[in-house]
Simulated assay, not measured.
Amino acid sequence: MFASFLRHALDWFIDGDEKAGPAATPEPRRQQRDLHPPHVPANGSVYQGGGRPPDSEAPPQREQIFVAPAGPRVTPGPPMPSAPPPQRHAAQPESPPAARAPQPQETRPRRPWDPPVVGKPTAAFAPKPSMASAYRPDYIADGWATRDFVVRAASVRGYSHRVSGDPRQDDIAVAWHEASGAVLFAVADGVGNAPLSHVGATSACRAAISAMTTGLDSPTGRVDWAGLLQGAAWQICEQARISLGLREINKQAAEEQMATTLVAGMVLPHPDGPRVELVQAGDSSAWILNVRARRYQCLTPTKFRQGEEVFSNSVVALPRVPPTDVKHGLLNQGEILLVGTDGFGDPLGDGNNMIGDHFADAFHELPPVLKFANDLDFSRETWDDDRTLFALWPHRSRG
């Protein structure tokens, strides 16, 4: 029986199943349409997606830096076997865009935080980074309030320095002396032809604030203003010695490298009104703005007084110490104190112009801190110096 079963299995293996009938002709495989378009990554190294893999000899495609606009969606039609396969070509390099001349900012609608345009604007451009060896931001913006005063302070790099890559040479320091309620301020403008004048400006501001704090904390409670200017000058010389690697202080080297102007002072609460005291070295200045009358009064003898001859560009600045001339007085109802560098003072002039109107409008009500800095960064042709401004509102003068 086993032999019969073995013979039957051998016959089936050689001749096929007698009951199976003739072998069926295989149906041709239907060509399937690829629902996913082929994709080659930007580096051409890995094949992803369906469809025909890319030719290995084809050069890799360049990464595109733009996104094509979305068009109407098209439903793919039936496959076309007779059509030749698509040819892959490397993306052609794009021609570099033609250089564009700076365009005035008024050619497009102003965005919320664009610099305010006053008259004819400065041409629009991308600022260069600061070439200072230490971090030097383009903007400083500060603001706070005490029980007596509200403070705003800002310093912005000028358009000329944004083009050249020079750092912001202005600086500012503000502090509150809690025991007396005084607000202390120092504003400095590094002289343009001194390579490290921005360091000198920072040194002078910090030395001035320290001197005022020391005076208010003393038994007399008074500031030695002559000592303040001398101390700021010494601090500049000492900083120059350190920065230049000198063995001893060299006043000439300090002046050549770090010369700076300075206005330093304080505002103290007083029964008759806020009392202002300040000293000046160089051409930075201070003003009182009558908010309702929109009138500016310059407090320091500089080139900003109406009817007086404009000074030359030469500035006698720290570390040369000028004679001490302390300015003091009271702020009246509706008045605010402004202290600024010539980047603010030069375009302001006597205030009877578009710049004066711009700030009278901006300061009619207390501005938010960032708006204060944005208003200072106005765009007007030819006015391209660094700008620094301190402003103080007595609480009763707000609004």
Score class of each variant (00 low, 15 high):
S4Y: 02
S4Q: 02
F5I: 02
D17Q: 07
A20N: 05
E27M: 11
Q32E: 13
Q32I: 12
G44H: 07
S56E: 14
P59R: 01
Q61A: 14
R62C: 08
Q64D: 09
V67Q: 09
A68H: 09
A70Y: 07
P78H: 07
M80V: 15
P85I: 09
A91W: 06
P96V: 01
A98G: 09
P102Y: 13
R111N: 02
W113A: 10
D114M: 03
P115R: 01
T122E: 14
A126D: 11
A134V: 09
A141W: 01
T146Q: 11
D148M: 06
S155Y: 13
S160Q: 10
D171H: 11
A175E: 03
A179I: 00
S180C: 04
A182F: 02
L196I: 00
R206G: 10
R222N: 10
R222Q: 15
W234I: 03
I242T: 12
G245V: 05
N250G: 06
K251Y: 02
A253N: 05
E256N: 15
E277C: 04
L278K: 08
L289G: 12
R294E: 15
C298E: 13
L299C: 08
F304D: 13
G307I: 05
S312R: 06
S314K: 09
L337P: 12
G340N: 05
G345Q: 03
D357E: 13
L370I: 01
F372I: 04
D375A: 11
D386W: 13
R387G: 02
A391C: 15
H395W: 12
R396G: 14
